[in-house]
Design a protein around this nucleic acid. Sequence first.
DNA 1: CGCGTTGTATATAGATACAACGCGGTGCTCTATT
Length: 493
Amino acid sequence: METLEKRLYEWFGYSSFKYNQRDIIESVLADEDVFSMIATGSGKSLCYQLPALWKKGTAIIVSPLLALMENQVQELKQIGIKKVAAYNSFLNIKEKKRILNRLSEYKMIYISPESLQQEEILKQISNLDVSLLAVDEAHCISQWGHEFRTDYLKIGNARERMGNPPCLALTATAAPEVREDIIDKLHMKSPVSICDTVDRPNISIQAIKKEKEEDKRTSLLEFTRNLPKPGMVYVGSRKKAEDLAEMIKNETSFTAAAYHGGMTKEDRHLIQQQFLLDEVQIICCTNAFGMGINKPNIRFVLHFDYPKDIESYVQEMGRAGRDGYRSSSILLHSDTDYFFPRRIIEWEFPSEEEVHYICHLLQAEDRANISKQTIESYGLEDVHARFMLHYWEEWRNTAEEHYPEDFINMVIKKRKRWKFHKLSQMENWISNTAECRRKTLLETFGECLRRQPNPCCDICGISESPAHDEDAAASRQFVPWQDRLYALFHQQQ
DNA sequence: CGCGTTGTATATAGATACAACGCGGTGCTCTATT
């Protein structure tokens, strides 16, 4: 397929495909459903952008963050691809109508799962020739869909309304159960699966036990002083992100800043830019920071609090060393960490009392009269209200009698059990790993460790001397010069 | 949800019991005000 290369150069200015890109694109062009797990920075977006331009019709691209959509649209327009739009709440009614009335004139429409559920857009899309439905950061379906953003679970229904176009799911991290969940929720039938390893040989892995929170702080300062920078510190709460950033600024000579979802958009953007430009050396953040960030030279990721599942851990530590140079992942833990993640899981669900109340309400009234606002007016949080509406709708289709007790047992308790299971899997890896950490980590992704890098992990032994750097050097050579140049160039911007 | 802090009443000047309140990741969208 010589013309594929020709178009790649003509449209995007690249002279060759990266590892796996061609396979994915060819499968998409053959109208296959494709599930693909490839590393961040290996050109995921091109995998739907090129087919979108190539094929007749309009591609719909589901994206989790408004900022990501805006970036992509802007970048495409800059390289001369103009028939693209983002359909979201940035638009006013006039602009929305304008786009709605001429959907078929676009080659790509970026959209959030929430906007995709609006009846106006579903109606228009059902008459549209949809060339491809692409879901970017598809692990969000599994990670966010069940409790936090339930519209992620409804993409499959929207797909049916479009007349079942071919579907491409893209992510950087997904364990086997998560892959199955994604494939199921997108109503994919025997998809082609194209996956990279999740192993990152240039990142050494450590989990270190400390007595108390105070000892974790001392250790954090020590690592901050001694490790190469820039670095990231992941914490569990907004307040702690700010506390630790303050502490690093006061106790060391390095620049630090906090980043979390409670900050204004402007502040978040500013801190992000400063970190990207190496003006801020250490960023202390909650899990709000990460998606869409492609900073190549992060030298360490330190987990001051551990995440609730192994995939999140792999995603977060994997932000280190994208340039291929030696980097560290360090996780600090202590017995006092036990309760926090458990409380957060409990908090994700409405209380039993609330469920009872809302179930009776939903049963007594005609469902059409009950909006999210009604449920919120009974004191439920935004997320819980959406949770109740989504599952109630599913629930009433599956059973004849609808008792709140059954709803609690079969919907809520089931999900909680699953979440606690994932949490203990994470904790087991932290506290009870007897073999190589890298090996056990890969096994949860259904992979084998093919070659042990040096340095590897705290169990295999971390050598302090930089003399054993052959592996970091070797992995560096794996990165083609074009990619390194690209990384350097983007670092400059 | 569950834990820790603050507030209030009681009955008497300091201490106790118990209720109320606040905390605690992730982001979309729509609507009504500054």
